[in-house]
Every structure is written in structure tokens, then in C-alpha cells.
Simulated assay, not measured.
Amino acid sequence: MPLKDSLAALIVIVAWGVNFVVIKVGLQEIPPFLLGCLRFALVALAAFFVPRPAVPWRLLILFGMTLSVGQFAFLFTAMTVGMSAGLASLVLQSQAFFTVLIAAILLGERVRLQNVLGMAVAAAGLVLIESGAHSGNVTVLGFVLTLAAAFCWACGNIVVKFVHKVDVLGLVVWGAVVPPIPFLLLSWAFEGKAAIYHSLANLSVVGVSALIYLALIATTLGYVLWAKLLTRYPVSKVAPLSLLVPVVGLVSAMLLVDERLGALQWLGGVAVMLGLAINVFGLRLLRRGTALR
């Protein structure tokens, strides 16, 4: 991989890993549904300059409602009611297993042995993480909502399968046109008019910076660079890089917001990462492990 593509991959990994800390910072000033509304409204402004991709509106709506509204409504709420930034970055990766299961049920795709083994190992890790849900940095509700966010992400992945090859920037930008209205309605209904006005009137430089980061860096730049890498290299070479996102998420959470995990949560995190690795690498990982003996 040339240096410029390696740098692009590094930018995506760091941007998505630090993203969870930025979300936590943003949620200190902006309630979750309003944060989702503002995040995607900023991205959607680019629709005035970016042509709409050749994608039917029904798919754009499904893309926006699953990958954006569903995923981030649950994730932002989870981090509000009790989910640490570091663990959120890890648990959200369970979307890989949900994607495999949904694709098997709806599309008839074959579930391989490596998928089943990876799911089993990762599930054991998730149980360990949940068992430490009263440690102070995660609650049972926060954990469950993060899993719901991962499920919505997986549903969005299935929608993308029907989109085929389109301009990625156009898909990201026009997919962001859908979420602001549902998020605003959710904010109005559950957070209230007073909370909306108060948040907007009292936004600090930190809050605005977090919002810009989420909209421009994590969403627009991150997804566009990632998609370009997928078009230039085999999925088998690019996909494993996403395993580094939770690592950056956990480390940045420790360094930037002083999050600390219990022993069971660390053990569970290692198990989830191992399960993800098995799901991606499959028998190659086992063969290499055997060869090292």
C-alpha cells in the first residue's frame, strides 16, 4: 500500500477511534437527539454542492434511517445513560456479526465456520463486559443500547449492498439529508423545547468544535477515505484495519477523559477483539498460530 493510502487508513482509524471521546464531550453540552440532528444537518449542507448519486430515494431513506438515525440515536443515548467512550468503540464492532446474521437470513449468504467461531468468542467477551456493568463506567441499559446501535449499523450495511457502485461522497452527503428531521422530532418529543433552546444558546467553543469534528472529520472525511480504500484494494486487506478502531478508542478514552476499565472488562475486550479477528481472518489466523508453535 503506497504511503498516501497508508496515511489515509491511519487518518480513518484515528478519526473513528477518537470519535467516541468527542461524542462524550459533545453530549456534555448537547442532548443526544439534538446532537444527531446538528451533526447530520452540517453534513447535509454539502448537498447544495454535491450531485445526488444514482440511488433511489427509498434506498437513501433506508440508508439514512438505519446507518445514521438508528445507529446514532441508540449510541448517543447509550453514552448519555451510562456507556464509556472506550467500551462503546469496542461493543459497536459487534455490527460485524449482526451483518453476517442478517445477510444469512435476508440474502441467503453462507455463514462460515470462522463466522460462528468468531461470534462465539466475541459473545463470551460481551458477557464479560456486561458482567462489569455496575463498575461505574457502564450500565446495563447503556450496554444494551450500544448493541442496538450495532444492529442498526448492520442493517445499514445490508442497505449498502443494494446501492452498488456510486459516488461515495454523494452517498454520504445525500444520506445525511434524511436524519435531521427524524432527529429533530425525537429531540422535540423526548428532550423538549426548553432543552433545545438552552443547548443552542449556550454552546461553547468546545461544543461547536465537537460538532464540527463529528460532522466533517468522523462522518464525511472518514467514510469517504474508507470507501476509496475499499475501491482500490481487496476487502480482505482493508477490513482488518477496522480492528484498530477500538484500540484507538480505548487508548484515547484513557488518555483524554481518564476512563478506567475493570479487569473483567479488559478481559472481555480482548475476547471481543479476538472474535473479530477470527471473523475477519478465519483459518489463516489459526494456521499462523499453529505455525508459531
Score class of each variant (00 low, 15 high):
Ala104Arg: 00
Leu141Tyr: 15
Gln93Cys: 09
Met79Phe: 10
Val81Lys: 12
Leu128Ala: 08
Val121Arg: 05
Leu90Phe: 13
Thr77Glu: 14
Ala54Glu: 12
Gly118Cys: 04
Ala88Ile: 02
Arg112His: 07
Gln71Val: 01
Leu60Arg: 00
Gly136His: 02
Asn137His: 13
Gly142Trp: 08
Asn137Gly: 11
Met83His: 02
Phe49Glu: 09
Leu75Tyr: 05
Phe74Ile: 08
Val50Ile: 13
Leu113Ala: 12
Ile105Asp: 05
Gln95Trp: 05
Ala122His: 03
Pro53Glu: 13
Met119Gln: 09
Leu92Pro: 02
Leu106Glu: 12
His134Ile: 06
Asn115Glu: 08
Pro53His: 15
Ser84Asp: 00
Leu90Glu: 07
Glu130Thr: 13
Phe74Thr: 01
Gln95Lys: 04
Gly64Ile: 12
Arg110Asn: 00
Leu106Trp: 03
Ala54Thr: 08
Met65Asn: 03
Val55Pro: 05
Gly82Tyr: 12
Leu75Ala: 10
Val144Leu: 14
Ala148Cys: 06
Phe72Asp: 10
Val50Ser: 13
Ala103Thr: 07
Phe72Val: 07
Ala88Tyr: 10
Leu147Gln: 03
Thr77Phe: 05
Ala148Gln: 02
Ile61Trp: 04
Leu126Lys: 01
Ala133Met: 10
Gly118Val: 05
Leu126Glu: 03
Val100Ile: 10
Ser84Ala: 07
Asn115Pro: 02
Pro53Asp: 05
Gly118Thr: 05
Glu130Trp: 15
Arg110Met: 00
Ile102Lys: 00
Ile129Ser: 01
Leu75Val: 08
Glu109Phe: 00
Ile102Ser: 04
Ala85Arg: 13
Ser89Leu: 08
Leu87Ile: 01
Ala133Gly: 04
Ser94Cys: 13
Gly125Val: 08
Leu147Met: 13
Ala122Val: 03
Gly86Cys: 03
Phe72His: 06
Val100Ser: 00
His134Trp: 10
Val144Gln: 14
Thr139Lys: 12
Phe76His: 14
Arg110Val: 02
Pro53Cys: 07
Thr66Lys: 04
Leu126Ile: 05
Pro56Asn: 07
Thr99Arg: 12
Arg112Thr: 06
Gly118Ala: 11
Gly132Thr: 03
Met65Lys: 15
Ala85Trp: 15
Arg58Leu: 15
Gly132Lys: 11
Phe76Met: 05
Thr66Asn: 02
His134Asn: 12
Glu130Met: 14
His134Gly: 10
Arg52Thr: 06
Met65Arg: 11
Gly118His: 02
Leu107Tyr: 06
Val50Glu: 09
Trp57Ile: 08
Glu109Leu: 04
Leu145Ala: 10
Ala120Asn: 06
Glu109Lys: 00
Ala73Trp: 02
Leu90Gln: 01
Gly82Ala: 10
Trp57Cys: 11
